[in-house]
């Protein structure tokens, strides 16, 4: 089949998943929802607004017509107008989502690094002090609610040590750069606004750290057990026996072979971080997609909530697709075909 076939297969699968996401949210918001019109319009809407909403979302049509238009608008990124922000939902998402992606990308890098090396380090020192230290650390960070992690970081790094700003996207005294990509750092660089760039960078440290701390536990845990399994393998014994040294055997041979389950897990971590941003951005008043979701929640803004949910799900599917492709690139057994895949 080869790698191209594999990737095309995954892409088709991903596309059907997106359709599925549309169908599932449709089922939830149009079919099983008690009184869809009132939910879409919001609790304080007047009769005429409700009528307008019924017209707009075609709620008086048969379900298959509704579904057709719903899928059409999902695929064309049209999620209606927010009754609270009075703006198209897609515009809102285009503004808020990149800010979150920015912290998620940094957090993913930190998490992957901490998780992979932490897990490998713990496995290399199995049942000795470093192993216990790593395990206690990830147990605690994994068991803490995300808001507690965020609060503790804020308390110590911002309020006690005054190293970092405690909240917001950037110093409010600075004017933000024109929105080009939506990514604050990138936009600031394009505009050569280095003062804003530096301020935004400092402001995203705490949310990034919080996201990394709540998620690195899973990766560490899986990496550790995956490493232990690799280190029981004959190829690891071969590596040791050859005399290349324990360090190289562990951190080159065993580590590479242990990465495969972790790659799939990174996609899951992405999903987990986006969900975590809902809480973390609330604590840091960081106006990303999580903040948008909570605002929608607090202000009875259904179109924004549903639109964000669908877009987030699409991004998660995309992340899974990327992970599948990476997986194929790392593992020659898939890349070149012929091998068994478990």
């Amino acid at each position: 089949m080869g790698v191209i076939g594999y990737i095309i297969g995954r892409a088709i699968r991903s596309f059907f998943l997106v359709l599925g996401v549309a169908a599932l949210t449709f089922l939830l918001t149009h079919v099983v929802a008690p009184n869809p019109a009132y939910i879409w319009a919001g609790p304080h809407a007047s009769k005429s607004v409700v009528q307008a909403v019924i017209q707009e979302y075609k709620l008086n049509q048969p379900y298959y017509v509704q579904l057709f238009y719903y899928i059409l608008s999902t695929l064309s990124f049209n999620y209606g107008v927010s009754p609270y922000f009075k703006e198209p939902v897609s515009t809102l998402i285009a503004t808020y989502l990149p800010r979150t992606l920015e912290i998620v990308v940094f957090a993913m890098v930190i998490t992957a690094f901490l998780g992979i090396y932490g897990g490998a380090f713990a496995a290399a020192h199995k049942d000795r002090a470093p192993d216990y230290a790593v395990r206690v650390f990830y147990l605690v960070s994994w068991s803490m609610p995300p808001f507690l992690v965020a609060l503790l970081l804020q308390l110590f790094l911002a309020y006690e040590l005054k190293l970092l700003p405690p909240n917001l996207l950037a110093d409010p005294a600075l004017t933000p750069p024109k929105e080009i990509t939506g990514f604050l750092l990138v936009d600031a660089l394009i505009e050569h606004d280095y003062a804003f760039f530096y301020s935004a960078l400092r402001h995203l440290v705490l949310p990034t750290l919080s996201l990394a701390l709540i998620s690195f536990g899973i990766i560490t845990r899986i990496m550790r057990s995956s490493m232990l399994q690799s280190m029981r393998g004959d190829f690891y014994r071969t590596a040791i026996m050859k005399g290349i040294g324990r360090r190289r055997a562990i951190y080159v041979h065993a580590l590479k072979n242990s990465l495969i389950p972790v790659i799939t897990l990174l996609a899951l971590t992405f999903s987990f971080m986006i969900a975590g941003s809902v809480v973390i951005e609330e604590v840091f008043s960081y106006q990303g997609i999580g903040y948008l979701v909570t605002q929608a929640l607090y202000n009875y803004d259904y179109p924004t909530l549903v639109g964000s949910t669908v877009v987030i799900a699409i991004f998660v599917i995309l992340a899974n697709f990327v992970a599948d492709v990476m997986y194929a690139l790392v593992d020659p057994r898939i890349r070149l075909g012929g091998g068994e895949t478990e």
Partner: peptide, 16 residues
């Protein structure tokens, strides 16, 4: 001392 193992399919590193 060099050792050759029983299971040929697992004694080499699959990623190298």
């Amino acid at each position: 001392v060099f050792m050759v193992f029983q299971d040929p399919f697992s004694s080499l590193n699959p990623l190298m």
